[in-house]
Design a protein around this nucleic acid. Structure first.
Lengths: 329, 329
DNA sequence: TACCCACATGGAAGCGTTTGCGCCGCGTCT
DNA sequence: AGACGCGGCGCAAACGCTTCCATGTGGGTA
């Protein structure tokens, strides 16, 4: 930087101010310095810059999954906004309990970022305290954590949309393909919706119709099989996510059952491949949620006030996997 | 750091040495300093550390896609290895031509990383020169760039495995669902394999059987439809990727055609949902490729010599979407 | 026993910015 | 016309660490 200051005939102080933005420098000086810097393709050292007092310009994103569509889409939306705000994304993949423990114990992002974004997993009290020692802002995307600002869908609502659709179609015997995932908070809401909808419709819960397995398409296939092994299987199933529903679809196909005539299936998420499978689902715009989270974060870093909670809309998307019961002919 | 030096009764120089690793410090001193640091949950400032001379401990990963399974899986494998090596991942999503141009023009990662990993997209001469001004190591994963060390599958081989399978089953009239993607280098090899396989089998190419569209399941569906609009459709189709193949599967299902009896379908990649659709494919271990790339990178940063090219194995995975032609009964 | 050496440690000079403070000169207000 | 205010700019002190070089100590060697 000393060089470029000399070459543009100003002091380092002025050069710094010229390059770093809105301080009190004349427009002409700024332009000159900028031009010199460009010619030498010079960029300020982020380390030195940060050291001298300032932000790191980096944000940590911690996520339990990367290759799962939902998380990747969230990350994508988030990344776009952060990039536009000139923030770099430091990715922390916390894939299992061991990683998780290590992450919170060692806080690898400590002193490296201005904020952390937690993607769709709950953070317990102890972990929140650890996060607090980093002394940075935290927000949650795709999942809800009371202590931090967050953006996500309302799982109760989404679940109700799916269930009410099934009920409206005349189904009375509805199975639930429930997913549990130690890292995923979304589940409770989606399960609650099932019970609430049934309750409102005056239908008693049949425990046999609720099957719970880890998340995953293959697990969905197994869950569906379990329902098909019942003396009296359901006429429709509500899956916690599209991947699970797609697994169920396979089992149904293999069993020679017709969808939707013999069995209606509804999922949640509107996964890109859901359309291919003609799956009725409750859609959400995951990328947009990531983007909203990104914008919130930028505001927070600017010191502006933000909503502590934003709920993303969900909407039933009717495709060919659901129909009236008994099926009209 | 001054604090922890004082508290452990040593100079800053010694404290620094104790914390940073293998310099000449007595074991007892080191332990004492470490303990004090832990108690105060102190970590060295990466900025200051870097500024004083040293690596950034960061690696840039630049990728054209995030939510596409292949890229996410690559990233996942890569991230795991880099994390174990105490390297942070800075994610750069270069989603379109504009992003791309901006990335190479501004080099946002300049001075921020020790190395950059390019995920499965070609970098032209001019761009390579830009990368060179960053003065860091570059490697490619999931795609091949002659100038840099890389790890990826051999697309010619993978394509041949798929095509030869179809040919072995007796198919003579084989369609190709080709994907083009300005960002994706893999395509040429997969197309070449088609022509080479046909040539070796003494079958003339019928241009009508080759349909080329942008990547994507929905595009695959359209491509398949195009083949079905032929006077004489093929008896089998070879898709450049599983997503495309799954799109084709939908079209076939809608057309009331049976797979594999009426039409065999083979893809490439072994996408997680391929199994659900009982899709025969040529599998590759994408996560492992990412991991290998990560290990290569770590070696390079250590100054160790590495292979400039590693080819990941691929293998035909036979499922239910392919069968003999004419179909036995 | 005297001397050399290796090893553990301390002192201090940077590393490349940002920024508080002060200085200078010009336009304005009275 | 003189004093005041303010914009534009330079000086130099941090920022928190690493590392070169010097110093002191104990053990081994002749």
């Amino acid at each position: 930087m000393a060089d470029i200051a000399r070459l543009s005939g100003v002091s380092m102080a002025t050069a710094s101010r010229a390059l770093s933005g809105a301080s009190r420098v004349s427009e002409s000086t700024r332009a000159r310095v900028r031009r010199v810097a460009d010619e030498l393709s010079y960029v300020v050292s982020p380390e030195a810059s940060r050291l001298a007092g300032g932000r790191t310009g980096r944000v940590a994103v911690v996520t339990p999954h990367i290759s799962r569509w939902f998380f990747a889409a969230l990350l994508e939306g988030l990344g776009t906004v952060l990039r536009d705000a000139d923030l770099d994304v430091l990715l922390y993949h916390v894939k299992d309990a061991a990683d998780r423990h290590r992450f919170f114990a060692e806080l690898p992002a400590h002193r490296k970022v201005d904020a952390v974004v937690v993607l769709a997993f709950p953070v317990d009290q102890v972990e929140q305290q650890r996060l607090a020692v980093m002394g940075v802002d935290v927000i949650a995307a795709g999942g809800q954590i009371a202590s931090y600002p967050f953006v996500c869908i309302d799982d109760d609502v989404a679940g109700r949309q799916a269930m009410d659709h099934l009920l409206f179609l005349g189904h009375r015997r509805i199975g639930m393909l429930s997913s549990y995932d130690p890292e995923d908070p979304a589940i409770a809401g989606r399960s609650n919706a099932y019970f609430a909808a049934l309750d409102d419709a005056g239908i008693a819960v049949d425990d046999d119709l609720v099957v719970s397995r880890p998340w995953g398409a293959d697990q969905g296939a197994l869950s569906m099989a379990q329902l098909l092994s019942l003396r009296e299987p359901p006429t429709a199933v509500y899956a916690h996510s599209d991947e699970v529903a797609m697994g169920a679809l396979r089992t149904l196909r293999r069993a020679g059952l017709r969808v939707p005539e013999d069995m209606s299936v509804v999922g949640i998420d509107d996964h890109p491949l859901a359309e291919l499978n003609d799956l009725t689902t409750v859609g959400q715009d995951v990328g947009e949620q990531g983007a909203v989270a990104g914008r919130m974060l930028v505001s927070i870093l600017r010191g502006e006030p933000v909503d502590r909670a934003v709920t993303a809309p969900t909407q039933l998307i009717v495709r060919g996997s659901t129909t009236r019961w008994p099926a009209s002919r």
